Every structure is written in structure tokens, then in C-alpha cells.
Computed example of a mutant assay.
Amino acid sequence: MADLATLRTRLAEAEDALHRLHMGEMEVRVASSGKAVEYGPADAAKLERYIATLRSEIDRLSGARRGPILMSF
């Protein structure tokens, strides 16, 4: 299991890669756990799932808790 700093670095790299895909790059490369994965425009959903997984793991390790915001008027 990766530490929090490593996960945050991976998240930044993955978000940058997704941005580059959306900006028209035909292929982006993301390194994770000693291996590199290449994503193309058709793989954007896979990259988004990877980003969601990283965010979830970061939240779990940092003790962050996301939930509904309760408001009263």
C-alpha cells in the first residue's frame, strides 16, 4: 500500500493526464506501482475510475470523511 504523499502524487499525475486527454492528446501515460499504463481518448472513463479510486484511498488514509452537507433554514 502506498503512503499518502505517493497517492497524492499519483492523483496529480492522473488528473493532469485526464486533462491532456480532454485537450486532444491522443495518448497519455500514467505510472503506478512501478508500471506505466497508457490511456487513449476511448479510455477516459477508465482513467476517471482510477482517479476516483485514488481520491477514495487518500480520503481513507487522511481520515477525511465526505458526506452530505446538512443545512437548515
Score class of each variant (00 low, 15 high):
Arg20His: 11
Ser62Thr: 13
Glu25Lys: 15
Glu38Met: 05
Phe73Val: 15
Val37Gln: 12
Thr9Asp: 05
Gly24Gln: 11
Ala64Phe: 10
Ser32Tyr: 12
Arg10Asn: 06
Val37Pro: 00
Ser72Val: 13
Asp3Pro: 04
Arg65Pro: 00
Ile69Ser: 11
Ala52Gln: 14
Gly34Ile: 04
Arg66Tyr: 05
Arg29Val: 06
Leu54Gln: 02
Met23Cys: 10
Ser32Lys: 13
Arg60Gly: 03
Arg20Phe: 03
Ala17Trp: 00
Met23Ser: 13
Ala12Tyr: 09
Met71Ser: 11
Glu38Trp: 05
Val30Ala: 03
Ala2Asn: 09
Arg8Pro: 01
Gly67Tyr: 02
Ser33Phe: 05
Met26Thr: 15
Gly34Tyr: 08
Ser56Asn: 12
Arg65Met: 09
Ser62Ile: 09
Asp43Arg: 06
Arg65Ala: 08
Met23Leu: 14
Leu47Cys: 07
Leu18His: 09
Glu15Ala: 03
Pro68Ser: 09
Glu25Asn: 12
Arg55Pro: 00
Thr53Tyr: 03
Ala64His: 15
Pro68His: 12
Glu38Thr: 15
Arg49Ser: 07
Arg49Gln: 08
Pro68Tyr: 07
Leu21Ala: 03
Val37Ile: 11
Ala44Pro: 02
Asp43Thr: 09
Leu4Asp: 08
Lys46His: 12
Gly24Val: 10
Thr9His: 08
Ser32Met: 10
Arg8Asn: 09
Ser72Pro: 00
Lys35Cys: 10
